[in-house]
Write a protein that binds this DNA or RNA. Sequence first.
DNA 1: AATCAGGAAATGA
DNA 2: TCATTTCCTGATT
Length: 330
Amino acid sequence: MGSPGCEHAGFTSHSPLYISHPHTDTRTTWLDEGEDVKPPRSLLGLPELSWPGVYLPCYDRLAMEENPWVLRMTEAPTPAPAPAAVPPSRTQEMNPVKPSQVQDTSPEMEGQAEERCLEQVQTMVVGEVLKDVDTACKLLNIAPDPLDWSCVHVQKWLLWTEHLYRLPQVSTMFQELNGKDLCSMTEADFRLRSSQFGDMLYAHLDIWRSTAAMKERCPPEDNKSAADDDSWSEVINNYPNQPIHLWQFLRELLLKPHNYSRCIRWLNKEKGIFKIEDSAHVARLWGIRKNRPAMNYDKLSRSIRQYYKKGIIRKPDVSRRLVYQFVNPV
DNA sequence: AATCAGGAAATGA
DNA sequence: TCATTTCCTGATT
């Protein structure tokens, strides 16, 4: 981060960036054995999926109450967010500006400090965007560069975007388009396909394109992924398009409590017992991953039950609703 | 009303 | 062929 050329991500003026962080330093650890201890809702994120992320203007329409500190870049000559609002794990290395640093200074100094501050925020935003795109790529099993997408990838991305912004189904309006087609479309083209959300999708795509362009300019240094990227390092399959198994997918989510403990979490990791907290949400994620828009918990749970006779997943000794157990815990 | 169990057939890679 | 997905009936929470 912050190497020359990386400061300006190349986001165009029509892609107002928002950053948001679901994390706070008040995060608590809930005990594995804790029976049905609900994770505090406010700590993990987005309306329903904690994909810390890039938000578009329509964000206003989304569940703001759960993200009390959205920073609007397009109108932010204001001080950096309060340190408490800065995600601790990701920004320690980014020197968040403390409010005290901008006090007791002359106007010029203040201007400089403000500029520095803005720069830092910008750097932070870029970092977050990169990360978020990365996370989405892994979840969807698609390449980061839209130009590389097949029609299926485009549909996945659209489904994901619908899910993220709680849009009605718009993906049907973009069928039979691959990534190149999508990228060659103008904002007007997008509007033609979806008068209501075309501009938004266009802006979101623009962010992805910018991110891909930036990745090319500043190839990722292999330092940060190891320590910083915690559990994604053991993600099962990356872009080589192998089908992922449901049990693997569930493990993936469970390995990312940071992002998904609101919808699925361990009750007892050692024994492999987990609970689906938000069945609809998990089903939707699975549907997105498998490109099955009609997926629901009824069907997902049937798939889980297929694992009973295969000895992959079972019901725990004391059967409880939405609680399952991996036969072979990690 | 949601979840659970499992049969049966369809589907897609 | 395999791993679901889809649909279903009936039971349980």
